[in-house]
Write a protein that binds this DNA or RNA. Structure first.
Lengths: 213, 213
DNA sequence: GTCTATATATGGATAGAC
DNA sequence: GTCTATCCATATATAGAC
């Protein structure tokens, strides 16, 4: 209890998170090279020197942004499936959760996907790629299981995974395209529960038709 | 004939294209801000001053990269559909062509998608978005027609489009993920005719199951 | 912890010689 | 057309005062 309060009141903790929040948003919009510490400091309402003070360097800040979110992300994965239920139930369940996770963390997912698609910081690319691979394993294992149990027809699991992640990635990472497609004026409107549910329903429908024997 | 030879022999023409080739590759890998004119000049084997001389500025070079490719890209679109054939034939035809186009121009498509997903150069984003919208219209019109003619069931055309473009974009823009998924060691291997055909077959299969009444 | 001032590097762009 | 040398702006990072 004491510790919680002390963390919450720790001004360093607050400021660090404040910097991380702004950094995540900016890196997501403009990429690592498109963000200067100066503009970041201005928008986060902190002094330029504070970034070095708290994180040491711009790249360390970038890594800190990634690592902070990784904790949250991993919590999703380690949560157990609902007990019982066949391959279909599990697939629907994981699609729902995956959409929510991607939409809720779309700034972060933008950073991840942009970074992995680039050839800039090799060690970060490797790190992120392994994490993404874990996610895909979750889907892949599910599909292989479903094929074995006879609930799904024999498809290529890799292509099945791409068919789920692909449209979803498009949805969370291309605001302009999505605004047009969703007939929305604001970006926030695109990610309202209406469209989110529409996306979930679509992916489940798409996969149902694709996987049913 | 004379003109062709004169263009081919024009050292300016050669050098310009040489710069554009290298620029396209580098912008695709590292993004606009991740490429310096110095590194570009080194890899293109030209003097730093030549970029200014031929293009005026870095941003103009970037625009030139985009405009050069737009000519090629548009040629694909203006080519007519094969005569006759129902909605299914047209869909399969356009999927084949779209995969080829995206794979052949994947460096360029990376630039386009990265740019559109970012919030950096508004006028370029607007320009590219409109071009992308044209592409999507080609798909969209096809699907609406197919629904009207009764060949396709009543689906949301927008979501259908996302289901084609999404996986394809993942395929062409995430080398690392694709290497793993395609079980290939080299990036070139991922885009061999084997995998390309596999992608075409998959998208056609996916859409067939999704669209059939 | 916070700020100012500054060291140092890098990048885009160009003037001017050839 | 091509190159060198240089200007100028901007960037990261830090030293040192408070």
């Amino acid at each position: 209890m004491k510790k919680t309060i002390s963390i919450l009141n720790d001004p360093g903790f607050e400021k660090k998170d404040q910097i991380l929040d702004v950094a995540e948003a900016l890196f997501s919009k403009h990429g690592f090279d498109g963000v200067s510490i100066r503009s970041l400091a201005k928008q986060a309402n902190i002094n330029i020197a504070m970034v070095s003070y708290y994180f040491g360097s711009k790249e360390n800040l970038y890594i800190a942004v990634i690592e902070r979110k990784m904790v949250t992300i991993r919590q999703y994965l380690t949560e157990a499936f609902p007990n019982g239920g066949n391959a279909w139930d599990k697939l629907y369940y994981i699609i729902d959760r995956y959409v929510d996770r991607m939409v809720d963390n779309r700034s972060f997912m933008n950073i991840v996907f942009t970074e992995v698609a680039s050839e800039n910081r090799e060690h970060i690319v490797d790190f992120l790629s392994k994490r993404l691979a874990d996610n895909q394993e979750a889907f892949g294992g599910l599909i292989v299981e479903g094929i074995k149990s006879g609930h799904f027809r024999e498809v290529d699991p890799q292509l099945a995974i791409m068919s789920i992640i692909g449209p979803l990635k498009l949805y969370v990472s291309n605001p302009f395209m999505v605004k047009k497609m969703m007939n929305e004026n604001t970006i926030e409107g695109c990610y309202s529960s209406v469209h989110r549910d529409r996306m979930k329903a679509h992916l489940k429908d798409l996969m149902t038709r694709f996987l049913k024997p």
